[in-house]
Amino acid sequence: MIQDEDNKKPKTEHHLGCELSAISADELRHRISLLRGEILRIEAEIERKEASRKAADNLFGPKV
């Protein structure tokens, strides 16, 4: 029964605003872990973009 095995696997995505009442505490913890990792990834990208912008501003001057 492949379908039964697929139903037991935790979902690896979370949709903002989704209903949480039917989700187990372990699954919610898993989603929190995934979301924290995503926050760190986004923050790293923000830092990279700001460093690139700062380097460009230093070279060419700030945008007016």
Rank of each mutant, 00 (worst) to 15 (best):
D6C: 09
E19N: 11
L34W: 00
R48P: 02
S33K: 15
L28M: 14
E38N: 07
R53I: 12
K49D: 02
I42D: 03
K11Q: 11
E5K: 00
F60K: 08
A25F: 11
K8N: 12
L20S: 08
A55G: 00
E43M: 12
E47I: 11
D26L: 12
V64S: 06
D26I: 06
K9I: 09
S24V: 11
L34H: 01
E13N: 13
E43F: 07
A51L: 04
D26V: 10
A55I: 03
E19P: 00
G17M: 09
D57N: 07
A44W: 06
K8A: 15
P62G: 02
A44V: 02
K11T: 09
A51H: 02
T12G: 10
L16R: 14
H15F: 14
A22K: 13
C18E: 15
C18V: 12
L28H: 04
I32P: 00
R29Y: 06
Q3F: 09
A44E: 05
N58M: 07
L34N: 01
G61T: 06
K11R: 15
I32Y: 10
I42C: 12
L28K: 15
K8C: 10
L16N: 15
Q3K: 03
A51C: 03
H14W: 12
I42T: 07
G37Q: 07
E47N: 11
E47M: 09
H30Q: 07
I46M: 15
H14V: 07
E19T: 10
N7Y: 04
R29P: 02
R29W: 01
E45Q: 11
A51T: 04
H14S: 04
T12E: 09
L40Q: 14
S33L: 14
V64L: 05
L16W: 11
S52E: 12
I32H: 10
G17H: 09
N7L: 14
R31T: 00
V64W: 01
S52I: 02
S52V: 02
G17I: 08
G37R: 07
I39A: 09
E13D: 13
E38A: 05
I2V: 04
I23A: 05
E50C: 06
L34R: 08
R41I: 05
E19I: 05
L20K: 15
D26N: 15
E13W: 11
P10C: 01
K49G: 02
A55F: 06
N58C: 02
L16S: 15
L34C: 05
E43W: 06
N7T: 05
A22Y: 10
H14Q: 10
S24E: 05
M1G: 12
D57K: 02
P10A: 00
A22F: 10
R31F: 01
E43G: 02
G37Y: 03
G37V: 01
E47V: 10
A55D: 05
I46Y: 14
H15T: 15
S21W: 04
H15Q: 15
I39P: 00
K54F: 02
L28E: 00
E13A: 08
E50F: 06
L16K: 15
D57H: 11
H15C: 13
R53Y: 09
E47G: 04
